[in-house]
Amino acid sequence: MIDRRQFLLGGAALALSGCKVFDGAGASDSALRKLFASHEGLTQSAQRALIGDRLAPEFSETDIRQGMRPNGSTDPASRDYRGLAANGFHDYRLTVTGLVDRPQSLSLTDLTALPPRTQITRHDCVEGWSCIAKWQGAPLGTVLTLAGPKPTARYVVFHCFDAIERSLSGEVFYYESIDLIDAFHPQTILAYAMNGAALPVANGAPLRLRVERQLGYKMAKYVHTIALTDSLASLGYGKGSYWADRGYEWYAGI
């Protein structure tokens, strides 16, 4: 057994020498990291059990005191996207594919023709900041129902126009996924308008996801394809989202 004084001195030395001792927890394959990350399943089940299908808090017009803070990609450079943007997204199509009975190709006109939902909500970035804005869009559940998910479908994957990273193997385009519980939640919408105007490019034009009970990185911007799938294993490194593949939680409720 460690002598108590040694224990205290060790603790003090640890604090003074900086915390490089625990830097191993940063490596995604380390045993320490796996131990620490073991809470994620518990955290997700606990939150799901507590929130059920309750709504995220909504705010009033007077709570909108500033423009929406853009973050991550703010101006996609791909030629496809540039072409669509130059034409005011007139030729934009949202593709709904994968495990569905009726694959869809929807224009902005098709999407705005669906009964819209408008909500004033607080956007929480994983970094710690928040910003309140008004979002209007087509409920994702409505769009999915048009396509008719097959019984085997479990996840909804979002593919985006923005290259979040340029690596040796080429550009990595942003990808995200949610499960069907969040996909059919009434506040989960494909937003085409923000603060009473068309969605600006910096905030994800022409179409972005809103998943109000999770953190900002779940709310994919510049969405062009929605794919229903039964597994996330073949997407990216298999964790289901660009940021989950880089150590963040796939279920970002906290």
Binding site: L16, A25, G26, E40
Partner: peptide, 24 residues
């Protein structure tokens, strides 16, 4: 400063994983 954070380098993802583990 690095001496007062875990990990010592900047890693929000790792900080969160450790924070929520010990929060439980």
């Amino acid at each position: 400063p690095a001496a007062l954070t875990i990990p010592s380098y900047q890693s929000l993802a790792t900080g969160r994983v450790i924070h929520f583990f010990f929060a439980w």
